[in-house]
Design a protein around this nucleic acid. Structure first.
Lengths: 207, 207
DNA sequence: TGTACATCAGTGAACGCGCGTTCACTGATGTAC
DNA sequence: TGTACATCAGTGAACGCGCGTTCACTGATGTAC
């Protein structure tokens, strides 16, 4: 029971998501219509409606996939061999930024509630919460390792998040996208995350 | 020569910009069409074309206005009475964030080159450069006041910018927009900017 | 001073286009009896 | 084992809508002579 009927090629649902991501990266949000997606996936313009109620549902699936990838990348980076605290902070930020630059379409969709109301997309909501929990644990660990929680853990969390998120936005869509040649981007990421690490180190954490 | 013909009410050009900002704040980018803007400004759907070639030109005018406002707000905040360095850093960040939250439509348009190619909008380009120059001078002053330029001035500039920009994005469009009630927003802004100030202070700058 | 012409902001009808949406259909798979 | 029915992914024609764009027009202001 519930066995799927045979489908030619990979799952159409998955193909639609892939086509949407590709479309977003090439031509941006405004170009993402149900009809264009169907065209890209090589099916009739009605086919996508069997898998997604509307555009927002497709964006929700992309956001879910994005949060899952971000969780993986962040966890992998942070759980590396025992690093000193300031390097762990720099590494975590780097993982976030590199994820954003490697998956621009996912990243843009994940953080715009006007596009994807997460309440309509329980899967994306859950993955987003998981990512947030990882970040919270990261800060907890940092404080346990000697970082003073000044003025509060919440503020530190927001500070770390803001640095990584802000740089990602500036590099992805902001003026940095034009000002900095791609060749210097990696260097720039290292410098900014190291600057944050240095500040963290300076504030008195030596673990 | 070149004297403008009489116009009923305020300049139509200005009314179109205002209507566009209002439309962006109420219904977002996707709702901004030339026809809808004309409707809001109370003129025929062709009238806006006498002042703006297309949608991008309107967005360019909004970006220009936004950069001008940001320059004003930032300059006012930073040139206040002599503050110790760490407070000057916190104040600068606060000005940036508060500008973004007070003028969401302007802010969103200013930092998306896919929407407004600044090369097509020399006015916006110039104001943007001016804002960037202010930021550069802000960092120069901080370094002159004792902040170690580690690993480089560029990196410090990007770090400060990223913190303020990242928080603004998260609060405006990101998950923070939903998670944090408006009443706590001001407190949150203070905490984050103070956390940055504390780090700056800890790194050895005492001016 | 008047006359004739140029300029320019704004109007309103008409067009073709891509969109979301509705609807009747096809054809394969699964299920009841 | 067969027959009859249900389900469900995908098709393709048809619709009304808002959009950008083209075009001929109006009416006020400015300019040449």
């Amino acid at each position: 029971m519930g066995k799927q009927p045979a489908v030619e090629g990979p799952d159409l649902r998955e193909r639609i998501v892939q086509a949407s991501v590709q479309l977003l990266e090439e031509r941006g949000l405004a170009a993402l219509s149900m009809r264009e997606v169907a065209r890209r996936a090589g099916v009739s313009h009605q086919a996508p409606y069997h898998h997604f109620q509307d555009r927002e549902a497709i964006l929700g699936a992309i956001a879910e996939e994005g949060f899952r990838m971000l969780c993986e990348a962040f966890e992998r980076a942070v759980n590396q061999a025992d690093l000193p605290l300031h390097e762990r902070v720099a590494t975590g930020g780097r993982a976030y930024i590199e994820f954003a630059l490697a998956h621009p379409a996912h990243f843009r969709v994940m953080f715009r509630p006007e596009l994807v109301n997460l309440e309509h997309c329980p899967g994306a909501q859950a993955e987003g919460d998981r990512a947030f929990a990882l970040l919270r644990r990261f800060v907890d660990d940092a404080v346990a390792a000697g970082l003073p929680a000044v003025p509060s853990k919440e503020a530190l969390l927001l500070l770390f998040w803001s640095v990584a998120h802000g740089f990602a936005c500036l590099a992805l869509d902001g003026p940095l996208a034009l000002k900095t040649p791609d060749a210097e981007r990696a260097q720039q990421i290292h410098e900014v995350t190291n600057a944050l690490g240095t500040l963290v180190q300076g504030v008195g954490a030596r673990s």
